[in-house]
């Protein structure tokens, strides 16, 4: 699966026919919104994501805040800040990006019949990669990116281990810390 994705991206990049350089300087702050559908490829697991990053661009620098849904193993809502560095002055530009923030698992706190309670705690979310913007009219564009994405999930389970004569039952807590490392390939719309 991974090889197929890489080959596809390689083919796309190779076949891109960049038009003549047309200088479109962005000399003032401009709002940008990029909304991307993603494919997450990890260790033996593939999932989708939907992310939206909104912020402001000045010249070739972009900074914004992002959120979305990440379905890799545990459905979660990331909240992050992202920085992008564009290269060149044409409407078609390569860029590199990096983001970091917090990841919230979207799951109900559960209690089983025999007293096991489960809860998720927020963890780190972040990543970096490279992308390409194919410019269209009025500053809009199609963006394609690939990179590395990491999210941390903390799952605390409490199981009743025994019940004494008086007072509440004794809970035995167990914590699972997942570090989930994925490649992320995204295709989206920028305006």
């Amino acid at each position: 699966m991974l090889k197929a994705i890489v080959v596809l991206i390689l083919a796309v990049f190779t076949c891109i026919d960049l038009p003549a350089q047309a200088k479109t300087p962005v000399s003032k702050w401009k709002f940008n919104s990029s909304n991307q559908l993603g494919l997450l490829q990890g260790e033996g697991h593939t999932a989708a994501s939907l992310l939206s990053v909104n912020g402001f661009r000045y010249r070739n620098f972009f900074g914004g805040l992002g959120t979305g849904i990440d379905y890799y193993r545990y459905r979660s809502i990331p909240l992050f800040g992202e920085y992008r560095q564009y290269f060149g002055g044409s409407p078609n530009q390569f860029y590199i990006y990096g983001n970091a923030g917090i990841n919230y698992v979207w799951q109900e706190r559960t209690v089983t019949l025999y007293g096991t309670k489960e809860a998720f705690h927020p963890g780190f979310y972040g990543g970096a990669g490279i992308g390409f913007k194919a410019g269209l009219k009025n500053g809009m564009g199609i963006i394609l990116s690939a990179g590395y994405a990491h999210k941390k999930v903390i799952n605390v389970q409490q199981e009743i281990s025994s019940c004494p004569f008086m007072g509440p039952c004794i809970l035995s807590p167990e914590t699972y810390r997942y570090n989930l490392n994925r490649l992320i390939f995204q295709l989206g719309w920028l305006f």
Binding site: Q41, E43, E174, T175, Y178, R182
Partner: peptide, 8 residues
Amino acid sequence: LKDDCRHT
């Protein structure tokens, strides 16, 4: 790409 899990 390896996922890591630690159990405490």
